[in-house]
Design a protein around this nucleic acid. Structure first.
Lengths: 100, 100
DNA sequence: TCATTAGTTTGATGCTTATCAAAATAGACT
DNA sequence: AGTCTATTTTGATAAGCATCAAACTAATGA
């Protein structure tokens, strides 16, 4: 079902906006709605990035009323690519490129 | 001097050809000349990919006679992004996308 | 029911980038 | 000098992708 394609995962998080989504999601205590992210792009562009992350398997999305919630798939990613997500999160925290 | 830009590093290794370069370099006992890589692209395209990796700081290149040698910058990357390169190499070994 | 809030879809646009072919460079060897 | 090997440079082409605006959908709440 979810056979992760590693280059695709890399490509997903390589975009500064999408990396910002991942880091904000990683730093948040719980799930986040699309609108609660701090992103310097138009909402329709944000939708595009959320879709890219979801299709790569990095996040999971579900509706809660009118809001669309986003979940980081930590466990799944850790199972398939051990240590990868953690190193990305800490690396992104260090070299903080403020998403363009 | 080398202040690594993490999204740029991600972008560099996100390309299947360039990921293949990194994995072949990681698997090799020593350095490799450009021509000794197994890549499904034209040499001039390969040059383009080597340049991208070098500019991102992933590899170092130097001339040895008529050959251009390539070195994976393991230590530098590990110092700045601990655990990242290792997780990438093992992830790439698992989800072997055969470089298109 | 109407308005509001949240997000998506659909074009359209412009930029980046991967690719190849052909010509150019440059060292090594004869 | 001349040839071979190895790689780069230069165009040129085509595809992908990030972006925004405007219109659409859908749930909430007055």
């Amino acid at each position: 079902m979810d056979d992760f394609d590693f280059p695709r995962v890399l490509n997903a998080i390589a975009d500064p906006i999408r990396l910002a989504i991942v880091t904000q999601l990683a730093a948040a205590p719980g799930d986040l709605s699309c609108g609660s992210f701090i992103l310097p792009v138009h909402p329709s562009t944000a939708t595009h990035h959320f879709t890219a992350l979801r299709q790569a398997g990095v996040i999971h999305q579900f509706y809660a009323g009118t809001s669309r919630m986003n979940v980081l798939r930590r466990d799944d990613l850790n199972a398939v690519f051990p240590g990868f997500l953690d190193s990305v999160i800490s690396a992104a925290a260090k070299a903080s490129t403020p998403a363009r």
